[in-house]
Amino acid sequence: MSEAPFRPREKLFEKQKYFQNIPKHTYLKGPMDKVTSVAIPLALAASSIYLIGRGIYNMSHGIGKKE
């Protein structure tokens, strides 16, 4: 008993040729990889820098203290 392949062999060869011929870094080869590898980390870094800056500003000016 043999199991049917997950994808046809021709499609697999097409994908392999596509990914092997792109002169980019391996983590940016897919069509949506720029979103997951670049945009999301930049958004997280920007929001964390903003929140850290806001916290330092509030501490230095005594804003938001509990009494």
Rank of each mutant, 00 (worst) to 15 (best):
P8S: 04
A39Y: 15
R7F: 14
K15E: 04
P31C: 08
S37D: 04
P5S: 02
P8K: 06
M59K: 15
Q16W: 06
I40F: 05
P5F: 01
Y18G: 00
H61D: 02
G30V: 03
Y50W: 09
R54Q: 09
R54S: 12
T26Q: 08
K24M: 12
R54H: 05
Y27Q: 12
S2V: 15
V38T: 09
A46P: 01
A45T: 13
K11L: 14
M32E: 05
K29N: 04
S37F: 07
P8G: 05
F6W: 06
E14Q: 09
G55E: 10
M1D: 11
H61S: 05
Y57C: 03
M59Y: 13
K15Q: 05
E3Q: 08
H61R: 11
A39Q: 13
Y50R: 07
I49K: 07
A46C: 04
P41G: 00
A39N: 11
A4T: 12
G64L: 03
R7N: 09
F6C: 07
S47P: 04
L28I: 01
G53A: 13
G53P: 03
T26S: 10
L28E: 02
I22M: 09
T26R: 12
H61W: 04
F6P: 06
K17M: 10
H61F: 09
E3V: 15
K66R: 15
V38C: 06
V35T: 07
L51Y: 11
I63D: 00
M59T: 09
Y57R: 11
E14W: 04
A45C: 07
E3H: 11
Y27G: 05
P5N: 01
I40E: 00
I22T: 06
K15L: 10
L28A: 02
G62Y: 00
Y57L: 08
K66M: 15
K24S: 11
Y50H: 11
A39D: 12
E3D: 10
G55M: 10
A46L: 07
R7T: 07
G30P: 03
G64F: 00
L12N: 04
